[in-house]
Design a protein around this nucleic acid. Structure first.
Lengths: 113, 113
DNA sequence: ATAGATACATTAGATTCTTATGTATCTTTG
DNA sequence: CAAAGATACATAAGAATCTAATGTATCTAT
């Protein structure tokens, strides 16, 4: 089972930032595989979603990049900048808070009005 | 504090369905107020987001409507259809599952590789 | 050799939201 | 009683963010 794609909307950036916070530096393909692995295939990040997200994080100064060659193949590593580290804390705690609120909303008991 | 809007994406439909499951019938404005109240103003559904969502649920046969007049003012009540009730269970349980997965992802401890 | 995995990237199109606008009625308050 | 704010519906332009498709190229296993 894979979650319907709309659920990922709004959380992808946070997932990527959190992974970078935990792993120091990662490259795009590695991120897709890591998420797939950690979620037992339930969340699969497509490249069409990931790369624009990474580029946008870079444009916002939240991550920095370094290119490495593996043989002849290029690999682009992403790391959190200082402001990226702050942003990660904000986003993760906001998402955690949001999930608490959602849990409450989803558990509302029937009204006997 | 209001959650950044992107977090709502993908969860709005589920919220609406769940509220209808718990309250039998509700009208649009009532839904916005109920969500505001239950979430202590942290989630505010805008009308521009809500009405298209309600119309889409109706077009999919998940809700039925009945119009009522309060004085001269019209009020449009929405109720779950049988298929809407099934859909609600699916969506709520999928979202609950997704949130568990996200919680796990967000709690990943740093790798000491 | 060839298929599948690794690795980057872009683009057209779909979805779903925000913000603004429009219409109209009802209620409260100075 | 006029004006402001709340109630109640709705649509539309534009932004954001995803999917699905496509492209290029290298590496690895069969």
């Amino acid at each position: 089972m894979i979650y319907s794609s709309e659920l990922l909307k709004g959380t992808l950036k946070t997932i990527v930032l959190k992974l970078l916070a935990d792993n120091k530096k990662m490259y795009g393909y590695e991120i897709t595989q890591k998420v797939k692995e950690l979620t037992l295939d339930k969340i699969q990040i497509t490249e069409g979603a990931l790369y624009p997200t990474l580029h946008s994080l870079e444009a916002d100064g939240l991550v920095t990049t370094e290119t490495e060659f593996i043989g002849k193949r290029v690999r682009k590593y992403y790391s959190l900048s200082p402001s990226g580290k702050n942003k990660t804390k904000e986003k993760v705690s906001e998402l955690a808070d949001f999930m608490e609120t959602m849990k409450f909303l989803l558990d509302i008991k029937p009204k006997t009005a």
